[in-house]
Design a binder for these strands. Structure first.
Length: 559
RNA sequence: GCUUCCGUAGUUAAAUGGAUAUAACAAGCCCCUCCUAAGGGCUAGUUAUGGGUUCGAUUCCCGUCGGGAGUACCA
């Protein structure tokens, strides 16, 4: 039931269409006033009457019915109350029938969305700076799937550049096969850090030579590179598994090595390429941007060149409806340039490329720096969160079965949720105090609410069904209204590329449920109330689970 | 310098142009013979600044101040 549409269709205003009325309908600040409101101020000019008079007149002409039970005119607002009994009945029926597909839709059927996210660098361990792109991308992946889109998750590996020459140089100088095999990614990173602290001009040129050898297909250099890549992927896949992240493609920068020349040829043919200070550029001066560098003065390709090739490849391969790049706002200009160049090349689909920018992560004492070793590794954060969850379980619920599994769900949930709760554009100053806080607006709060709901439901022997014509009280109505809002929340999150909408929704619903839970006895309620409240509890559990699942967060039965 | 993003309680943040700006954390007080206290209740406390558009601005536009990011051969 679309209440806004229903109301809009019942209201007739001279020279104003139903569409316009519907878009004007808003939500009152508190539910004593009503469930929907129509501010009448903007109609004052057209009707040449005061908003107060208009509201009054509309009220008198509005016949209440089974759907809208009450209408009132207050200070130029026309307020509507919906029939709570009917709303409760339809919402509960829908949720209990649809279960884990409640909130999903087919709106994306037949459309493909590519999402470029996480995009790890080979030979570098995962630090907290990589968390946002990974979990935002991962959540968008799940949200779009839920809405029926065909989704292609792309890990655009950072596997190209002179740093790999440096790495090989460092390995040949100081490395030991067994040590690296055993120490994995961190052993590789140590070599890289050491190279950067000790390198002189001679070593730098050696590194450039090794990179050239990789490029020219030298056997030894490539074997080493592939080995480093293998160790990296082994390591990141463990983390992805914990975070519930999946990919459909690992085509990284190197993948586009042989796909850049056609782009360069096309740029030339379209007269877009020109020489400047020895380099080949696309001039973007008319668009207020610095030029997009395509080839360096030594003829080598650049980041932008590979992104142009990647965009064209993705369009040809997947024929996407949209292609998302979940990359920090640091690269705003880069994407603006790449998108503009594609537009100038005549690719009409350049409009479907979206840079989903998010804020940067820093430490309390400033920016992170891998080269200086000033970083917080993600695996340490995950482990600490799990440890804390484990300690709390041992203290509060030592007899819990599945203690370890529960601690994992709680700890990892806190890591993911912390990165998804605020608007993605906000910068984050990382602190252990914040991620390790398991109270208030957190995933732990939501999971705890689910555990409470589960506990209540498990105590009821036999079934329960939705009672007919039950009139919900204030707390129950608040939960019902929140439950009804879930499908629109998911759509909103997709439209804004903003998983925090879903995270905030989960906390909001949990808060309303907890207020209901404290105020209203469920199991010992009289008559229809017990059945109704059990259905409400079940529906809340289903919806909270659906919301957390979209974020990649699991829900323990008990905690 | 130029481009761009951000500025809301002590802190971290919410709020399709709508009514009395909403939560959490921290602070103070209260609630476990009662469905899980990782919970609930109460108290106190906020839109940087000057204009403009509007019946109405945290939201849109212009300026100022403060902060982040970017600004040619790194990614």
């Amino acid at each position: 039931m679309d209440y806004k549409q229903y109301i809009a269709n019942k209201i007739k205003i001279e020279n104003v269409g139903a569409e316009e009325i519907m878009s004007a309908i808003a939500l009152p600040p508190n539910s004593d006033m009503g469930d929907y409101a129509l501010p009448c101020f903007k109609f004052a000019k057209i009707l040449r009457k005061s908003p107060v008079a208009i509201a009054e007149e509309l009220k008198n002409n509005f016949a209440t019915d089974d759907v809208i039970s009450e209408v009132s005119a207050v200070n130029g607002y026309l307020n509507f109350k919906v029939n709570k009994s009917g709303l409760a009945d339809s919402v509960l029926n829908r949720i209990l029938n649809e279960g884990d597909s409640y909130g999903s839709s087919r709106e994306g059927a037949g459309k493909t969305i590519c999402i470029d996210y996480s995009s790890v660098n080979i030979a570098k361990p995962f630090h907290i700076g990589h968390l946002s792109t990974t979990v935002i991308g991962g959540a968008l992946y799940k949200i779009y799937k839920f809405l029926g889109y065909n989704v292609v998750g792309i890990n655009h590996l950072g596997d190209y550049g002179t740093q790999f020459g440096k790495l090989i140089s460092a390995y040949k100088r100081w490395g030991d096969r067994e040590e690296v095999q055993k120490g994995g990614i961190h052993a590789i990173n140590d070599l890289y850090v050491r190279f950067n602290t000790e390198a002189d001009e001679k070593m730098e040129s050696e590194a450039r030579e090794y990179f050239r050898l990789i490029e020219s297909g030298d056997k030894e250099a490539n074997e080493l590179f592939e080995w480093f890549k293998e160790l990296t992927l082994e390591y990141v896949n463990q983390i992805y598994k914990k975070l519930n992240i999946t990919f459909d493609s690992y085509a990284g920068e190197r993948f586009y090595t042989d796909k850049m020349q056609p782009i360069i040829d096309e740029l030339k043919a379209k007269n877009l390429l020109k020489e400047s200070e020895g380099a080949q550029i696309v001039d973007l001066e008319p668009y207020g941007m610095s030029p997009c560098l395509i080839l360096r003065s030594d003829g080598a390709s650049l980041y932008a060149t590979r992104d142009l090739a990647a965009a064209v490849y993705r369009k040809n391969t997947y024929d996407f409806y949209k292609c998302l790049y979940v990359v920090a706002y640091q690269q705003n200009l880069h994407f603006k340039q790449v998108f503009k160049v594609l537009e100038l090349m005549g690719k009409e689909w350049a409009k479907d490329l979206v840079h989903v920018a998010y804020g940067m992560v820093s430490l309390e004492d400033g920016a992170m720096s891998t080269r200086k070793g000033k970083v917080v590794w993600l695996e340490d954060v995950i482990n600490k969160c799990i440890e804390k969850a484990s300690a709390i379980i041992n203290e509060k619920n030592p007899d819990l079965v599945n203690k370890e599994e529960t601690a994992n769900l709680v700890g990892i949930g806190a890591v993911i949720f912390g990165a998804l709760y605020n608007n993605k554009i906000k910068d984050i100053v990382f602190s252990y105090d914040k991620v390790l806080s398991f109270e208030g607006e957190t995933s732990v709060y939501v999971q705890y609410t689910c555990a409470r709901a589960n506990s209540v439901l498990s105590k009821r022997e036999g079934g329960y069904k939705i009672p007919q014509n039950y009139s919900p009280n204030a707390q129950e109505s608040e939960v019902i209204k929140a439950l009804a809002a879930f499908p629109a929340t998911v759509e909103d999150a997709a439209e804004k590329y903003e998983p925090s909408c879903v995270a905030r929704y989960a906390v909001d619903l949990a808060q309303k449920f907890n207020k209901f839970y404290i105020e209203c006895k469920i199991l010992t309620a009289e008559g229809d109330a017990a059945d109704f409240r059990l259905c409400l509890t079940k529906a809340t559990l289903v919806t909270l689970k659906n919301a957390l699942t979209l974020l990649g967060i699991g829900v323990p039965e008990k905690m």
